[in-house]
């Protein structure tokens, strides 16, 4: 077990999630991409805690924050999806491009 292995898998998860968040048209799939990016952040935080600073608890606290952020992202994302679907029957990101500048 090395720090590099963990960080490389975390970077892989982050990049795949970024690809999904940028390329998916469906709002639900876009959120899956965001979740995958945060999944990578969890892995990186755990690896940094274990391999660099195991004496402190900051790495663990960061994981708690990220897990909470995932829950909030899901709840808020689905609430926004519900609101925009109710108002305009939009379920694709391309249907909600009003603010595109």
């Amino acid at each position: 077990m090395t720090l590099e292995l963990f960080l490389l898998s975390a970077a892989g998860l982050f990049a795949i999630g970024l690809y999904g968040a940028l390329s998916q048209q469906s709002i639900v799939m876009l959120m899956m991409g965001l979740e995958l990016m945060l999944n990578g952040v969890i892995l990186a935080a755990a690896a940094f805690w274990y391999f660099l600073a195991p004496a402190g608890t900051e790495g663990q606290v960061l994981i708690v924050v990220v897990v909470t952020a995932m829950a909030i992202e899901m709840a808020a994302g689905f609430a926004v999806a519900t609101a925009i679907y109710r108002a305009r029957q939009v379920d694709m990101t391309d249907g909600a491009a009003d603010l595109k500048g």
């Binding site: 990049a15 970024l18 940028l22």
Partner: peptide, 15 residues
């Protein structure tokens, strides 16, 4: 169900 697949791939591979 994709849009801008090539651009997204470039950005994520670059990242």
């Amino acid at each position: 169900m994709y849009h801008n697949k090539a651009g997204a791939m470039t950005i994520s591979v670059g990242t």
